[in-house]
Amino acid sequence: MSVILGHAIVILILAVIVFFCGRSVIREIRHELNGGGCSGCGGNCSGCTASCHKTDPKV
């Protein structure tokens, strides 16, 4: 395997990780800042994802 191909594979994998993780993180932060973090969970979990549970509107 050539050096260029090796580097290209690593860069591609990193790009995929950055894309998906980055998208998930941005969505999560936006959701959390809107008060959606862990909403509806009621659990002691740390940092649920945005899709954790269906949320209720503010009482």
Binding site: C21, N44, G47
Partner: peptide
């Protein structure tokens, strides 16, 4: 279950926010 749920959420977090911010 309660222990794992809490720990797993933490690990998931490390796999998203921490990866991006580490980069």
């Amino acid at each position: 279950r309660a222990t794992w749920e809490r720990g797993w959420s933490f690990i998931k977090r490390a796999g998203s926010v921490i990866v991006i911010s580490s980069i």
